[in-house]
Write a protein that binds this DNA or RNA. Structure first.
Length: 195
DNA sequence: TTTCCGATTGGCT
DNA sequence: GCCAATCGGAAAC
């Protein structure tokens, strides 16, 4: 797979305000290279999770074994198991000791689509990456990626050259019961893959 | 150590 | 639209 059309986004990009990073990640590409097997697509839905004041965030209870990565330096993957079944993938933001992470909720499958179909056991494009646990399965992201620095584990964030601007929206986050008043969900309005 | 429950998904009514 | 699957983190006891 030829990634010449793409430019790698460096780790410094994430040493920033989490909400801002969540918004800026829309329209970037999430691409995995697992043992030379490359797949990915355009990010169309993200959510920001902060610290103590954000009661929906795992970090709201202070540092624990599970969430410790969120308190570490930016650019690391925070991957956790949800409902005992599924993995969700986040990118840690902010400086060390300031908790914050961006959950990637949906991408538009574009690169290595056949690989993703195989990993998912689904044929329809809409079933591949239209949800946080679907896309981790499609991209081969697992709990082993928790606490790993991006790029070093073959998880890449890239920007496509000359990509057309699309309308962005924000709103309340999905699947949570606390801090629902915070509009930390960001998505591309016209994408079919938004959950 | 016991209990409760979740940043979801997919199958069935 | 409803609900089971399935398990480990966090808090209660």
């Amino acid at each position: 797979m030829d990634l010449k059309k793409f430019k790698l986004i460096g780790i410094n990009y994430f040493k920033n305000n989490t909400v801002e990073v969540a918004r800026n990640l829309l329209d970037c590409y999430l691409i995995t290279d697992k043992k030379g097997v490359i797949c990915g697509g355009r990010i169309v839905e993200t959510e920001a999770y902060l610290g103590f004041e954000d009661k929906a965030s795992h970090a709201s209870v202070g540092p624990t074994r599970r969430n410790s990565v969120m308190f570490g330096p930016a650019g690391y993957g925070y991957v956790y198991l949800i409902y005992g079944l599924h993995c969700c993938f986040n990118i840690v933001c902010e400086k060390k000791d300031v908790p914050g992470a961006v959950l990637i909720r949906a991408i538009e499958p574009e690169i290595g689509v056949d690989i993703m179909k195989k990993r998912r056991g689904k044929e329809k494009s809409l079933d591949l990456t239209s949800g946080p646990a679907k896309l981790t399965q499609a991209l081969g992201i697992t709990l082993k990626d928790n606490g790993k620095l991006l790029q070093q584990n073959g998880v890449l964030i890239m920007k496509r050259n000359n990509s057309r601007p699309r309308a962005l929206c924000s709103g309340s986050r999905i699947g949570i019961t606390k801090s629902i008043e915070l509009n930390y969900r960001f998505y591309i309005k016209d994408s079919e893959f938004v959950s």
